[in-house]
Amino acid sequence: MNYTIHFSQVVEYIPYLIGGAWISLQVAFLAFCGGMVIGLFGAMAKTFGGRMTRMVVDAYVSFITNTPQLVQIYFLYFALPEVGILMNSYQAVLLGMTLNAGGYLTEIQRAGFLSVRQSELEAAETLGMNLMQKVRYVILPHIMKVLFPSLSNLYILMTLGTSMAAIFGLEELTGRALNINAETFRSIEVFSLTALLYIVVTVVASLLLLAVGRVFFRVKGKVF
């Protein structure tokens, strides 16, 4: 072995990497929010929809959860131009991640819907609430409390998942790591530092989520 570890050469890039981590968090956040909206409609469709609607949602969820996210994004990025839909890499990655999250979040939120007690729904019925009001005032507050742990878990996994954006040339954390690697050839140092930053970022995210859960949804839980 004739490789010696020199962290000194990559130290100057740390702020650049941290900037990348910030982009990773943003991408994850945007995709998560988009996915939540899709998931909410998906879950509503599966709970209250007719047979056809349910079948369409089932097909979507089944497709998303049984194929790799990377290939989904490849498809969007390379195949859609063949029918004239052109996207830049950022749009393709974001759309891909959002659609992917939507599939998983449909499943998660549907489980939440199912856990709403029938009696609460009947109470809402007698109060004369319509569907949107029921969702807004009865179902959502309840499922947020029940689902918060699995939602935060998914958010962390999605933050890690954003690293595949680098494959499409996005300069988020992994993308920037690849840039530094190409410049310095200090591969081990660069990627171990990157790994460490992912750990820091996700631990910070977990802590924030924990605080949010405690304050807004009365969820007890631990970071690790």
């Binding site: 962390i156 890690l160 998942g161 954003t162 690293s163 595949m164 680098a166 494959i167 992994t174 790591a177 591969s187 081990i188 990627f191 171990s192 990157t194 790994a195 992912y198 750990i199 996700t202 631990v203």
Partner: peptide
């Protein structure tokens, strides 16, 4: 730690 590192980064790290 290893539940908080993306698979892609692990792959690249192990590769190098």
């Amino acid at each position: 730690f290893f539940r908080r590192i993306p698979f892609l980064v692990t792959l690249l790290l192990i590769f190098f």
